[in-house]
């Protein structure tokens, strides 16, 4: 490791300065006390880093989690790397493909574009939480039946989005489905089959 006097290049301030400044600025910070301590006592930066996490309570697929995460951790990375729920996919990381779609309190969102800490206390449903006790959700069944995928990578996002699309009442026609599913890209091009699957679920009247 380099000597203490070395200044990092560019616009990035040194960690310690950052910690000192930011933690002294506001009274309602969620960053815990130890960070302040680390900054004040000029502990080694790598030690200080260990404290840069905030606590987070989340319910994922019915399981309550009490976690400690960096504020910059996205919901997507939290699911994939911390909770090993890799069914939720990273296809672009910029909200431009939909592979990371999950439900937060029942609404479909791009998990790559929100920080996990912003979801304190919320209920997250991922593809792993859609089937009930080994029985596939009707949308999952329909995707298998209509071959609504090829490589399978966009599939969890398509299915989470499709379930929401039906629940929202945006699956009234083929055209409406195509419009309201356009946030989920399938590069294999299984769109016709995905639409057929959604229509079957919608028309089948099963509870989604």
């Amino acid at each position: 490791m380099s000597s203490e006097t070395d200044k990092p290049a560019g616009h990035d301030e040194s960690r310690r300065t950052f910690l000192k400044q930011s933690s002294l600025l506001t009274a309602f910070t969620i960053v815990p006390g130890p960070v302040l301590q680390a900054a004040t006592y000029e502990l080694d930066e790598k030690v200080a880093a260990a404290f840069e996490k905030v606590s987070l309570k989340l319910e994922v697929n019915g399981v309550k989690h009490k976690l400690s995460v960096e504020p910059r951790t996205t919901l997507l990375d939290l699911l994939r790397e911390n909770l090993n729920l890799t069914g939720t996919k990273k296809g672009c990381d910029y909200g431009q493909c939909g592979a990371c779609t999950v439900h937060v309190d029942g609404q479909r969102v791009n998990s790559c574009l929100s920080f996990a800490v912003m979801h304190e206390g919320k209920k997250i449903t991922t593809i792993e939480g859609l089937a009930e006790g080994g029985k596939l959700h009707p949308m999952q069944e329909a995707f298998v039946k209509h071959d609504g995928f090829q490589c399978g990578y966009c599939t969890p996002g398509q299915i989470m989005s499709a379930v929401a699309c039906v629940r929202e009442g945006h699956a009234g026609s083929e055209t409406e489905i195509r419009e309201f599913m356009s946030g989920n890209i399938c590069r294999c091009g299984a769109y016709s089959n995905i639409v057929a699957a959604i229509q079957e679920v919608k028309n089948g009247g099963q509870k989604v």
């Binding site: 069914g87 089937a131 999952q140 995928f149």
Partner: peptide, 14 residues
Amino acid sequence: NRVDGRLKVTGGAK
């Protein structure tokens, strides 16, 4: 139907 369909629709495919 695909033999790996179930894995792909449940997020089980790694």
